[in-house]
Amino acid sequence: MTPRIRYCTTQAGRVAYSTTGTGPPLLCDSGWITHLRAQLELLSYGAFIDRLAEHFTVIRYDKPGCGLSDISGGSGGSSPRAGRPGGSGGSSPRAGGDGIDLSFDAQTAAALAVADAVGADRLRLFGASQGAQVAAAIAARHPERVQAQVLYGMCASGHDLAPAQVRDSIVALVRAHGGLGWKALAGAFVSDPTDEEIAGLARFQQASASAEVAARLLEVYYDTDIRELLPAIEAPTAVLHREADRGTRFELGREAAALIPGATLIPLPGASHLFYHGDWLSVLDATLGFLTEQPDQAPQLTARELEVAELVAEGLTNQAIASRLSVAPRTAEAHMENIRRKLQVRSRAQIAAWVTEHRLGPKSAR
């Protein structure tokens, strides 16, 4: 699979993304550092994505400062819908060694900007490790956009991953020498790694991010606490966690699942933290089993929104709709935005087509 790379603008600079497969959109965040091309050759990652793409349009992206994304910093302004501040824990607003915004909020904004770029107003999420925190934050802050999500190998607070002294030592080692840092982490990420696997992980790290960016992203992860966000999640959620995970203890995943209303905890055998190592097929089966059982729900418009949609189908402008309904023009515009978001459309013609398809009209309001 050779990905076709596109770019979108975020507050942290241009972010690279790619899509593969067909079906409902599935936004994937695989965690710490990324490289859209090199990652496909790492262990069983490419096979995992291929299997997901049999059921979904898989959307992947390189985090700010990583892989094929902009590594020079700078901002073109993120999508106006790409997240709002707050709830990120202790990450600083400007986090990159080269002026790139690597904060947790910038990462969630970048993910949403990618979803906007591909026109995925409503989507499913797959997040692993630090990417699970990003996915969970999106679901909590933007419930209208997330249909369902799978969170793998997650923790609610990065402080719980290791004692402060250990966290500081690992960050310092990654910052001083990325290759040695990967070797130090290999035992936590992969159970019983071979020399070849350690070398492959080190090459991937060097291709994905500079030592400074990798260290800062790890530092942000350690400093992020989303416990207060988890109870706000409304989307159906499955928390997958290997019972002997060496990188993130099983009880941390269990804690996160307990904080998410209605979440399903799915314990899995194994010790590798990377979902694409070891028995990756069990992770795939659990992911597909949960995500494919979530039906594509029909949009639910309020009575007023249905009324506005019907008037759009009649050809009325926003001003005319406001006059007909005796509401302020700004209120009519707000209804239009809600309708576009819920129907996942961008034009008035698409709204009119939806009304026709569902046999709505002036009589339906009576």
Rank of each mutant, 00 (worst) to 15 (best):
R216T: 10
P64E: 10
A128C: 13
A328R: 13
Y61T: 04
T248R: 11
D160S: 14
A238I: 02
F290D: 06
V150M: 00
L27W: 03
N338V: 05
A186K: 10
S91F: 09
P231T: 08
L291G: 00
M154V: 09
V134A: 03
P295Q: 04
T19K: 09
T292N: 05
S30Y: 15
A132P: 00
W182T: 14
P261C: 00
L217F: 04
G181N: 05
G315M: 07
W32R: 03
S157R: 13
F48A: 07
T224D: 07
G99T: 09
E357A: 15
P329F: 10
S44A: 14
R122H: 11
P329I: 13
R359E: 15
A140C: 02
F275C: 11
V283L: 08
A303S: 13
S72R: 13
A172C: 02
R348E: 15
I100E: 10
A117H: 10
P80I: 12
V174W: 00
Q350V: 08
A349N: 12
Q11G: 15
E293N: 08
L284N: 01
A140R: 04
A244H: 14
A256M: 10
R6G: 10
R14I: 07
L360K: 10
G153Y: 01
T19Q: 01
G361M: 11
I100C: 05
S30T: 11
G270A: 06
E197I: 11
I5N: 04
T20K: 13
L268M: 13
A16L: 03
A95P: 04
E310C: 15
G200Y: 04
G21C: 02
T248W: 00
K183R: 13
E144T: 08
L343V: 05
L217V: 13
I339N: 00
D192E: 15
I260Q: 01
G153E: 12
I138D: 03
G97N: 11
S103V: 03
E307R: 15
A211H: 08
D50F: 02
W354D: 08
V327A: 06
A120H: 01
T237K: 03
A349V: 12
L316S: 06
L102W: 08
A263V: 07
G77H: 00
V146D: 01
A334S: 14
Q149M: 14
I233R: 02
L268G: 04
G119C: 07
P24E: 15
R340M: 00
P64D: 05
C8L: 09
A135G: 06
A320H: 10
L40P: 02
R341G: 09
C8H: 14
A139L: 11
W182L: 15
R51M: 01
Q149G: 05
V239R: 06
Y17L: 06
P295M: 05
I339Y: 09
P236A: 01
P80F: 11
I266C: 10
D70I: 06
A313N: 11
T224M: 11
A16I: 01
S129E: 07
G46E: 04
L218Q: 11
D168W: 12
E305C: 03
A176W: 05
G187A: 07
A140P: 03
T287A: 10
L343G: 05
V118W: 07
L360N: 08
G270D: 01
I138P: 03
I339L: 03
H142G: 09
W280N: 10
Q344R: 15
T34L: 03
Y276C: 11
D296C: 13
L252V: 02
S364H: 12
R94V: 15
L325M: 14
